[in-house]
Write a protein that binds this DNA or RNA. Sequence first.
DNA 1: ATTATTTTAAACAATTTTGTCGAATAAAAA
DNA 2: TTTTTATTCGACAAAATTGTTTAAAATAAT
Lengths: 203, 203
Amino acid sequence: MPKIDHDTKEKILAAAEKVFHANGFKGTRTTLIADEAGISRTMLHYYFSTKESLFSEVLQNTLSTVFSHLKKIIGSNLSLNSLIENLVDVFADLLEEKPGLPSFIINILNESPQMAHAFAHSKQDTIPFELEEILKTAKQNGEIAENITGEDLIMNIYGLCSMPYLGASYIKVMENRTDDEMINFIRERRLKIKELIIKGIRP
Amino acid sequence: MPKIDHDTKEKILAAAEKVFHANGFKGTRTTLIADEAGISRTMLHYYFSTKESLFSEVLQNTLSTVFSHLKKIIGSNLSLNSLIENLVDVFADLLEEKPGLPSFIINILNESPQMAHAFAHSKQDTIPFELEEILKTAKQNGEIAENITGEDLIMNIYGLCSMPYLGASYIKVMENRTDDEMINFIRERRLKIKELIIKGIRP
DNA sequence: ATTATTTTAAACAATTTTGTCGAATAAAAA
DNA sequence: TTTTTATTCGACAAAATTGTTTAAAATAAT
């Protein structure tokens, strides 16, 4: 029986993820992926017929990672503050694992708004529903300002958590940070983000 | 004496700004700029020899717009809260004028980290210095938590204000918003951002 | 040892994109 | 009116990029 070298395929996928996340679909050169994986461009076409098929596999991997993180929150019966801390942790963990994710998502939304449409209508993102429910009771208890919506909360979290990754190259040189220092900086910021949001949405 | 049609040049620059802001340098096709401007591609090369030269003029225009906005804040002797409200207003006004700016900046930082380096070292961005000064006295007065830095404040403002523009296509379809409704949504969010930050950084 | 599988290199076709050139037209300036 | 300027079109060269093919190697399976 034939044996496939899964190792090489994985190497290609890992390299492709890195390059696609950083440069989007159009911006990516398959040559760069091959270089990054340390293989020839011929080999790339041996495992993946086209750039599109490679991209689509990377996209699926990325989305499944996102959903596996999101599932950590679903079903838990939490107070508002715990929920917020949980959401921030889940997003922050996700971004620490996939630092290129914010720029990747933004790129996709830019390059093909159809995908934004499809994704928005897929209803796989169940967080908004849970959120509205919890916000309702929190408002009744006077824990939170009346005008805050679930959308607000998600935008606060996603915007604040993504920022350091989107501006990484600038933030790094601004304070002459090493890679390790950047990771620490972002970890410390995670705590500040939680505090900012929890205090900031009070009545 | 010869007469140059400045109108056409401006049309090209406006179209180029739109396309470059939306797609970055690599992602931009000069054909698209010509189409957007309603002129032939030959004409584009008549006024701008290369794609690079056109990009560089767009970039300079963009940066001068950014700085003209930033200057509105400099030199004023404000309380912490007024400063924050001012900063949010200035950024929000800027983004309302140039909605593609966040994705443009992110693209530049991604495509050429050298530019991030150059920009960070140009010291044209004087806000951090002013900020640290004001934060110092605010901390002495107990108006703000000790661990908040100027960098934190700027990241909060920039991240929160940019978010709706970066995810625009998603946010639009999510709630079936028209263009006008999007503008209103973002204007209302501006107030929430101010409140979030002011309350969120208290001790 | 023989066969099948993985990998590379080199060459090539097709496509896209950028930039140039020359001819031709319309409009304004001299 | 003659000349300069603004504009377009079409053709084309050069470069980059993607994908195919062929021949040849290294490696693993039987």
